[in-house]
Write a protein that binds this DNA or RNA. Structure first.
Lengths: 236, 236
DNA sequence: GGCGATTCTCAGCAAACTCTCAGGATCAGG
DNA sequence: CCTGATCCTGAGAGTTTGCTGAGAATCGCC
């Protein structure tokens, strides 16, 4: 397996959340992304795990019954741990509350989020926190280039404007270039978890992407495998 | 027997289903595919078997009377087991019930399915869950190459477009290259189980395949053994 | 508040796909 | 060479799948 397919290869992540279902979802998908995973269901366990497991990054739900994310963060920092933290916040969390959280290399994601987006954020804070790990932040398929840091896509040198969803979808396809992805797999990764729509939305967005990425150029990069799914593929 | 002919060689699979007939069918055909097989008819037995038998992969029916597949999955994961799971779902299952099944290394197959398709999915999740097992994902017979990831077939470097059924049929033939397969055996593996049509459909699809794979080229790879069945064979 | 961008649903259309059938070709055995 | 069995293949009906434009609802930003 290549690096792009297992973006968390060799990295340790601690998941802190009181909801069993969400913990389970994150654990499964981050494991598969190549991370070594530990979980904690409350603040005290989290503090113990930070010391024992020595994670490279923490995913922390800020709304927990016994000890909120602010308190956990303060205690973690007070003990001298400096690893980045990705906070999970409710959509209605106020801006200044979030601003107070995300100092330094930290980041946050609002619930409900898409798995592809969360993994991308985790990988991003890891890259920023570790200057020794100079890893190309851009994906490339043929003459199509996606730069994650700049959040920019170009084809044949020409900048292409994408909406947030289009960008996440394209990144997921490019991370899996040369492999067919079913509509349900795309839904599960690119759309918010527990999304209850059907695959029609994926068809619509593939149509949007094609109009921007394939139609203005000679060689199509996006391919439909009827009855199976979609794929981006290097033409050579 | 070669690796390609026994795709499950040395791997352990646990089958969890409450329907005795389906359990029997799966047990038989996965054994034949080279898997070591254990079965369970309900959730509790399944949990015990996961611990005792230590399967590399689980095939799990999501609709069971005592404990549904999601509950079984949660309990399995809660105990720290990370092996991939292939879920069996009814075709009319609402989309939100299926949502989230394809995160991580898991996959799902809708009932009724074809055995060849199920085995292919099982092999695929196993390959992706185990990065140490660097195994070629493509089958090759002469200059004919079938790439399972890209769901793509080429002959002499030229891409050949196949429908889903044509693809499954060709893969089944190529997995058994050099061996004659009877029409009824092909029906049993490539078409949905309990298919009630006769072998005429196989003749039709062999004709489709020939038109795409043999007719445009010099050397025929698909051969008819009159009164016995069909075979694909390396010309050399 | 207003306006454009974005997200999502939906329905009509086009194309692909599956399967049946029947006439014709081919083969094996006598 | 005859004959029945087997297989091949083209035509076509019925179904499924995917594409796309239109429009409603929402979001974000001035």
């Amino acid at each position: 397996m290549t690096e792009a397919e297992r973006p968390g290869q060799g990295r340790r992540v601690l998941i802190v959340d009181d909801e069993p279902d969400l913990r389970e979802l994150l654990s499964t998908s981050l494991s598969f992304a190549g991370f070594e995973v530990a979980v904690a269901s409350n603040g005290n366990t989290a503090l113990a795990q930070v010391a024992d497991f020595a994670p490279d990054v923490v995913v922390l739900d800020v709304q927990m019954p016994d000890m909120d994310g602010f308190t956990v963060t303060r205690k973690v920092r007070a003990r001298g741990h400096t690893m980045p933290i990705v906070f999970l916040t409710a959509r209605d969390t106020t801006d200044d509350a979030v601003a107070g959280l995300t100092v330094g290399g930290d980041d946050y994601v609002t619930k409900p989020f898409s798995l592809a987006e969360l993994v991308a954020r985790i990988v991003a804070v890891l890259r920023r926190s570790d200057s020794t790990r100079v890893e190309s932040p851009s994906l490339q398929v043929g003459d199509l280039v996606l730069d994650d840091d700049a959040h920019e896509v170009t084809r044949a040198g020409k900048t292409i404007d994408l909406s947030p969803t289009e960008f996440t979808l394209l990144r997921f396809l490019m991370e899996n270039a040369g492999r067919v992805l079913s509509k349900s797999k795309i839904l599960d990764h690119v759309w918010e978890y527990q999304w209850d729509g059907d695959g029609a939305i994926v068809e619509t967005y593939m149509s949007y992407l094609r109009k921007k990425i394939d139609t203005p150029f000679d060689t199509p990069l996006l391919h439909t495998k009827r009855g199976v799914g979609y794929m981006v593929k290097d033409p050579s």
